[in-house]
Design a protein around this nucleic acid. Structure first.
Lengths: 185, 185
DNA sequence: TTCGGCATGTAACTCGTTACATGATTTT
DNA sequence: AAAATCATGTAACGAGTTACATGCCGAA
């Protein structure tokens, strides 16, 4: 699917930067829904250059250190928009190790299960608080639809809603494990 | 992380079965949060056998066809429970191509974006209906906490809540794209 | 008798992570 | 002077998909 390819083109379309900078981007704005390490990014940039979707200029930091500043080409921009316009199904399984563990959790005694859910709940509550902190940069105003901040905003909203949903689900799991009678829905 | 290993041990702990049957299990109960093809399952079963976590007996279907019915060993059960008891962080990124596209969506005109969200909305509404159909097998009663149906139930609940959250988010995205004025939160 | 499902495997490839490897620059 | 950060790459491995390859069984 070459998803990394399009992630790099998308980031370079916002601003020209080095492979090192691209790696950092994945630790910030995009962190919730995509990630890549420099060891994957450098070879992909080379491939993108061979394909003519990016170009680069070598700049000197200090006296000696060379860095390659990558820039998207017109061809790269076309390729990015083509990908964004696709109607892919993408109906594949979102793999989730925690939910897999819950699926098999009847092999644990009830107290261990509750502990497992409580620990996970704490993590997601922490994560939600962190995201709410990020959200403050928007100052309660929806950004203009034609700036890249708009996508950033919608994705952050999605991440917060996901964390809220997981918190609700985990509380429900704890309640179902704690009730003395099985009860009805 | 050898996640497939534990998925197979978990399924075999519920019932002995063939590699072919295991592959089918991934298309049903576990579909929402894990998946594997037979081409990955057969080599993993071989490895699990070498490690002593599973054993198998050869049965004959009809006159000639041999099938290997795999069975979890005591050692395999210990290994499964050990894994379930771990407190892993698992705080890694849940990769999501659709959200990546939304992140870069300001490169599309507003009508294309709304179409993209509407198509995705339809898919998730359809998926939710399908999950609600699956949920009817529980007949409105929470299964006993010590049967494997309980994990099944909690995971299905999680899948439904996820779909509901995504539907809400997509409707919000459409509203934000459709509003004539930017507005405030 | 043909078609869909049962049943098991391997090969080639892509994607992603961890570790290896190096060296310059800036900050404390 | 040491430590953190900037900067770029490669190698080995593990995980997962697609395609290749074979053949039996039961039902229509």
């Amino acid at each position: 699917m070459r998803t990394l390819k399009y992630a790099l083109l998308g980031l370079l379309n916002e601003e020209s930067m080095t492979g090192y900078d691209l790696a950092k981007q994945f630790d910030h704005a995009l962190l919730e829904f995509w990630h890549a390490k420099h060891s994957q990014i450098y070879p992909e940039l080379k491939k993108l250059h061979d394909e003519g979707f990016v170009s680069y200029t070598v700049e000197i930091s200090g006296n000696v250190l060379e860095k390659k500043v990558y820039c998207i080409t017109d061809s790269g921009r076309d390729e990015l928009v083509r990908w964004l316009s696709l109607d892919e199904d993408m109906g594949f399984t979102h793999k989730d190790v925690f939910r897999l563990r819950v699926f098999f959790s009847s092999n644990l005694d009830i107290d261990s299960r509750i502990e497992m859910f409580e620990r996970q709940l704490l993590r997601h509550e922490k994560r939600l608080k962190h995201l709410q902190g990020n959200n403050e940069k928007f100052g309660g105003v929806v950004p203009d639809r034609d700036t890249h901040l708009f996508g950033d905003f919608l994705v952050l909203k999605s991440a917060m809603m996901r964390e809220e949903m997981l918190i609700d689900w985990l509380k429900y799991c704890i309640a179902m494990c704690s009730e003395s009678d099985a009860g009805t829905l």
